[in-house]
């Protein structure tokens, strides 16, 4: 069954039709790419999927359940986590605390404010378990050595990785990556590709990503949807889509 199913999704800002009749189906464990020129509406779709914008029409189904128009927090609890095009870390918190903040809603780590203030046994138990889980996640991204650093002191590439780690901490069914390779040099991009592949294997994660870097897209995505002016231009297997003359004209240049 499809983890994410989007049917006839559309949104208008006043008279501007930003996204129109958008359909998407992402299978479990798939690595799906969403590409398109600047202003095509890719991030707008992400924002609708995560509840930042309310779609004007259409439906979003996560594991068969309708999540259209739900608030961001609820959608995260349902199982969609994301990263941002411009990195949004909790800059003044430590690397470890960034991930621990991601564990906020995991049942096994929840305790009340009063428990925290009074430092009841539950506090120590939950914090200890949180530390372990967070370190585990950091190790996956090779960030465990920097756990006590302030997030803003990490180099750019590691900040991107930390953002993915934080998103994974919320234990999602679907991970949305908004231009994960933006601002990276070829080496870092290569490393990132490996990380994304690893995350997918390790966590059996379903990933939907927006990307401009064609090498990355061609390298790791199984399926692609190409967006142009808010409409689907092409959709299908990566190799075929990238050969499509329409796509080449619109996006890659003639």
């Amino acid at each position: 069954m499809a983890v994410l199913e989007v049917k006839n999704l559309g949104i208008s800002f006043g008279g501007l039709r930003a996204v129109d009749d958008f359909n998407l189906e992402v299978e479990k464990g798939q690595l799906y790419g969403l590409i398109g020129p600047n202003g095509a509406g890719k991030t707008t779709i992400f924002n609708m999927l995560t509840g930042v914008y309310k779609p004007t029409d259409g439906k979003i189904l996560l594991d068969g359940e309708d999540i259209t128009g739900k608030p961001t927090i609820e959608i995260n609890k349902e199982g969609i986590a994301r990263t941002f095009q411009n990195i949004r870390l909790f800059a003044d918190l430590t690397v470890l605390d960034n991930v621990k903040a991601g564990l906020h809603n995991q049942k096994e780590y929840i305790y009340s404010t009063l428990t925290g203030i009074l430092r009841l046994p539950r506090y120590h138990q939950a914090e200890h378990a949180m530390d372990e889980r967070a370190m585990e996640l950091l190790k996956v991204f090779d960030l465990d050595g920097e756990a006590s650093y302030k997030a803003s002191n990490l180099p750019y590439g590691k900040q991107r990785k930390l953002e993915i780690a934080r998103a994974l901490a919320t234990n999602p069914k679907l991970l949305l990556l908004d231009e994960p390779a933006a601002g990276m040099n070829p080496n870092e991009t290569q490393e990132l590709m490996d990380t994304i592949r690893f995350v997918r294997e390790e966590f059996k994660m379903t990933i939907l990503l927006i990307e401009h870097d064609m090498k990355l897209v061609a390298g790791i995505c199984e399926k692609l949807t190409v967006l142009n002016f808010g409409q689907v231009l092409a959709c299908g297997e990566t190799s075929e889509v990238l050969k499509d003359p329409k796509v080449i004209t619109a996006y890659l240049g003639e």
């Binding site: 930042v52 927090i73 941002f84 949004r88 909790f90 991601g102 906020h104 809603n105 919320t170």
Partner: peptide, 8 residues
């Protein structure tokens, strides 16, 4: 925005 995105 990030806090909201992780369910806070």
């Amino acid at each position: 925005i990030a806090a909201e995105s992780i369910g806070i």
